[in-house]
């Protein structure tokens, strides 16, 4: 193999890249103008050097013309579009995914507003707007989840199918990591549940034993690791896979629905917090609203900026 390589390199060195342009070469260079701008930006200079070193014939011109047609018919392959279109759309999807996950965590935390349940039921009976705001927030979260699945599952399927076909070890690891983390978390929680809820005997407020406290802290850390690690691993898998431009364009629709639902959910959560603060302050003490709202706000900000970038990429690509 090395001999072949050396032979070819010496052959190329013998070529004369700077010989004056003849008519055939000028025509060939003219044929390069038939190619799309993105193709010319990447390859034209290189091809010109190849043409100068080669013997340009009529067939060379026909071949270049056919190549130009091919490049126009397969614009999705062109280098500029790879970055500006598929890459940007995929990044947009990944960021919307991260935004949704952050929001979903905050949304799950909002369920604690109903703890303790009798107190919550008394508050909603006295202030029906409280229940209305809570149900609306839940509905927004549900719509966002369904839209997220509508966009995310086809991408996940595409990534899995491609990974199985190509056997990319790192992507396989990235796809398996969230599953492994969830399994570890669940097994740890089940194994320690008996010890992590033990309270010190004869205390009024059910104070946890040191072991129980340590186990609960470990469980919290493990949960955060599972959450952040799972998101990072899935993002890596998608970022290192080729997802078709058509599918990426489609995901902008569920992505837009997710983003709108998150905005609506954030507004209803703020409204819920205001109702709680003004009409049912006894409920407010049971959960950390400011942290929840900050997390939701961060999730919404991520989703909005990613959707905006995705829409711009799609518009720019269509016009390119």
């Amino acid at each position: 193999m090395n001999n072949i390589s050396n032979a070819s390199q010496s052959a190329s060195q013998q070529a004369q890249p700077d010989k004056p342009d003849g008519l055939a070469l000028r025509l060939a260079r003219g044929a390069l103008r038939l190619y799309p701008a993105a193709w010319r930006a990447r390859y034209a200079e290189e091809v010109t050097l190849v043409l100068r070193a080669s013997h340009v014939t009529g067939w060379t011109l026909i071949d270049l013309a056919l190549g130009a047609l091919d490049a126009h018919f397969h614009r999705e392959l062109l280098p500029g579009r790879l970055l500006s279109m598929a890459h940007r759309l995929r990044t947009s999807d990944i960021v919307i995914f991260c935004g949704y996950m952050l929001y979903a965590l905050a949304w799950a935390a909002m369920t604690f507003v109903r703890d303790p349940l009798p107190e919550w039921e008394r508050a909603t009976a006295a202030h029906p707007t409280l229940l209305l705001a809570y149900d609306t927030m839940d509905l927004a979260g549900l719509v966002a989840t369904l839209a997220f699945l509508a966009g995310g599952l086809p991408i996940l399927w595409s990534v899995i199918a491609q990974t199985l076909r190509r056997r990319q070890p790192r992507v396989i690891f990235a796809l398996l990591a969230p599953v492994a983390l969830v399994v570890i978390f669940v097994v740890f929680a089940l194994l320690t549940v008996q010890y992590s809820t033990t309270t010190v005997p004869h205390t009024q407020n059910g104070q946890l034993t040191p072991l129980a406290f340590a186990l609960q802290m470990a469980l919290l850390l493990l949960f955060l690791l599972t959450f952040v690690g799972g998101i990072a691993a899935m993002s890596y898998a998608v970022a290192h896979s080729e997802v078709s431009e058509r599918l990426l364009r489609y995901t902008l629709i569920p992505g837009a629905v997710v983003t709108l639902a998150l905005i609506f959910g954030l507004l209803t959560t703020v409204a819920l917090s205001v109702v709680i603060a003004t009409e049912a302050p006894e409920v407010a003490s049971s959960f950390g609203q400011p942290i929840v709202i900050i997390m939701m706000l961060a999730g919404v900000a991520l989703a909005v900026s990613a959707l905006w970038r995705g829409l711009r990429a799609a518009r720019g690509g269509a016009g390119a």
Binding site: M1, N2, I4, S5, A7, S8, Q9, A11, S12, A15, A28, E46, V47, L49, V50, L51, A53, S54, W59, T60, D63, L64, A65, L66, G67, A68
Partner: peptide
Amino acid sequence: GEKHGYAMMEDIAQFSGVTFEAG
């Protein structure tokens, strides 16, 4: 080994006898 376009065309012609154009 690494090669640029023209070197590839030369190499391929040498080991396979197949020639093709730049397009």
